[in-house]
Nucleic acid binder design. Structure first.
Lengths: 190, 190
DNA sequence: CCCTGTTATATCGTGACGATATATCGAATT
DNA sequence: AATTCGATATATCGTCACGATATAACAGGG
């Protein structure tokens, strides 16, 4: 059994499927509207993933259309996938656990898009993790900027400057979100 | 002979090597300072690329250190790579030609970082190409924003909003750069 | 009743890269 | 002077992700 890696893709699929059963084609579109900004999602990744998640018991297949016959022959069969209860559990544990590379662009965006299904405390943890990561990146950039200053190519410099700005913006954005979340947290504890 | 695809990597390597001979390890660091923001560059990609570029005659190897003996056995051998004249030509043609996917993040960043070696007219073309591409992306985002409005998840919405802003900024940035370039162009024609 | 575009599932080859091995050197640390 | 440790440096291999592509059914405009 081809063991895939990317938990990110699993998350995206399971998270999208949380709101009801879907067939592959539609699933892809929905998932892309979540994560399309930073990731692509080709069928070459999607269908193998769907198959494996089914094998593992996280997904259930309801293929009324293509019952039994002509597997793999008839497109337009509309094979509907839905979460099993094990699948829901798995989704929850994925949402709660902190995987490796949790703060990478891909992973963060997916987790963020699924925030409405995520516990408030976990949300804060994810936001803060991303924050730390970005501040680190900012330091790296600034260091390289001050180190090079005179020696560096004009255009490389300009690129770096622009990159710095973008990261700064995202840090500020995160700050706001973290503030909001913490306020919300306090109000719930009252 | 393993034929690689990515012209982007070729560009990065040749462009970095334009300023003088380097060995792999150092080359990687320099190249990363150019494109590190958007791309990673692992040895698993770098060394095969170096080998192939050498085979194609674009690179020349000057391994004083590891002359003849113990190939592949001795690290620290400091194998220095430098551009051949064919390599310089190839670099120039890569810079001038418009490859497929010219406006992807990766490709654009590399081409931008090498602007000091790029003809002014080509610079403008690249900037404008990138501009069009981003405006398209912006339209897609906006469309999806207005289509969903009420129906869409709060967090997905917020993510999209933030993404929109980032793209808008980059468009403005490009506008400035294009203006500058065009001004420069006119002054040269006087 | 074509023709074109969209919906839909599915697979395959391969290129890219993470992980890892190996080894040397310089500079602290003891 | 011995020893540790991190940085320097080259190299390869297995495998995963995905682009490209095939197939075909359907809707609807002309």
């Amino acid at each position: 059994m081809a063991t895939r890696k990317s938990q990110t893709l699993d998350l995206a699929i399971l998270g999208t499927l949380k709101e009801g059963e879907l067939h592959g084609y539609e699933l892809r579109k929905r998932a892309l509207s979540l994560i399309g900004q930073v990731r692509s999602l080709s069928y070459g990744s999607l269908y193998p993933a769907l198959r494996e998640l089914t094998e593992r018991g996280y997904l259930e297949v309801d293929d009324r259309a293509a019952l039994g016959i002509r597997r793999g022959a008839n497109p337009r069969a509309r094979i509907a996938y839905s979460l099993t209860s094990a699948g829901k559990e798995h989704l929850n544990s994925l949402l709660a656990e902190s995987g490796p590379k949790e703060w990478e662009d891909d992973s963060f965006v997916v987790r963020f898009a699924l925030f409405s299904q995520t516990d408030l405390r976990v949300r804060v943890r994810i936001l803060e993790g991303r924050h730390t990561r970005l501040v680190e990146r900012l330091e790296t950039i600034r260091e390289s900027l001050s180190r090079g200053r005179e020696r560096m190519d004009t255009w490389t410099l300009e690129l770096q400057r622009h990159g710095e700005e973008a990261v700064e913006r995202e840090v500020r954005w995160l700050n706001e979100l973290i503030d909001n979340a913490k306020t919300e947290e306090k109000e719930m504890n009252k």
